[in-house]
């Protein structure tokens, strides 16, 4: 079943090259989609449009079949009213490159605050959900710690648990390991792998090619704001058809080998 559908999305900013120009794709339930591409290719902007951190200039987005934003044939962009957007937002989770944990909350409260305040969960239930999630990411002993006491890898795992506590239908990752050194990257990727094994629907913007190859069901290659090529990882990584994909992947292997 299709969980997210984007049609002909456009987004640009004054004075930057990071744009999205005419992107369409869909994600099915349980699917893991990796988005790769050079810096400034619009990957992060696309993710920010999908998670309502930015408003699109044109195009339509449907979440679980329901419209979030639509564009009429005359080019009029209409977002659904705020109370509906609030409901849609609850279906979408996001993990940032820089974690963005709340420094004044303990790890436990970072995870329970939104379920209690936004989703209306009882504190007891939220805490039991949080403790289960902490056990799953191997950080049960850190429940009472504060973010400054965590390593980057631990912080990112907590950020994933915080997003998962809202039980989203789809979880977006914006370069989740780019702020981490290689040693810590592994522990975060392992958590994402485990989520994939549990059929969590995910869209991951990443520079970790081997991860994309191992975990993703489908890989999207973006360049200059457009989807240049997409397909299953084995095909895309071994026999890319597009020249830009070939060039990017060859560069990438040179870089990662260095």
């Amino acid at each position: 079943m299709e969980i997210l559908k984007a049609e002909n999305l456009f987004k640009s900013f004054v004075g930057t090259e990071d744009v999205v120009s005419g992107v369409s794709f869909q994600i099915n339930e349980g699917e893991v989609v990796a988005v790769i591409g050079p810096s400034g290719s619009g990957k992060s902007t696309l993710l920010r449009c999908l998670t309502l951190l930015e408003r699109v200039d044109h195009g339509s987005i449907f979440v679980a079949g329901k419209p979030m934003v639509t564009t009429s044939p005359t080019g009029r962009v209409t977002y659904v009213p705020e109370e509906q957007l609030r409901k849609i937002r609850l279906r979408l989770g996001m993990v940032f490159q820089n974690f963005n944990l709340f420094p004044h909350f303990s790890v436990l409260r970072n995870i329970t605050e939104a379920p209690i305040r936004v989703a209306g969960m009882s504190p007891a239930e939220a805490e039991s959900v949080a403790l289960q999630l902490l056990a799953k990411i191997g950080l049960s002993d850190k429940a009472e710690a504060y973010p400054y006491q965590l390593s980057g890898g631990q912080s990112q795992r907590v950020a994933i648990a915080r997003a998962m506590a809202m039980k989203p239908d789809i979880l977006f990752f914006d370069e989740p390991t780019s702020a981490l050194d290689p040693e810590l990257t592994g522990e975060v990727l392992k958590v994402i792998r485990n989520l994939a094994a549990e059929q969590m629907t995910m869209m991951v913007v990443t520079h970790e090619m081997s991860f994309a190859r191992d975990v993703a069901d489908r890989v999207i290659f973006m360049d200059k704001g457009q989807i240049v090529e997409e397909g299953n990882p084995d095909t895309l990584f071994t026999t890319p058809t597009n020249d830009r994909t070939k060039a990017f992947l060859s560069n990438y292997h040179v870089n990662s080998g260095a």
């Binding site: 998670t51 309502l52 609030r86 940032f96 939104a114 809202m166």
Partner: peptide
């Protein structure tokens, strides 16, 4: 306060 704090709060639905 970093922009990321607002964004994290926004995607969590606050």
């Amino acid at each position: 306060i970093p922009q990321g704090q607002y964004e994290a709060a926004a995607v969590l639905g606050f």
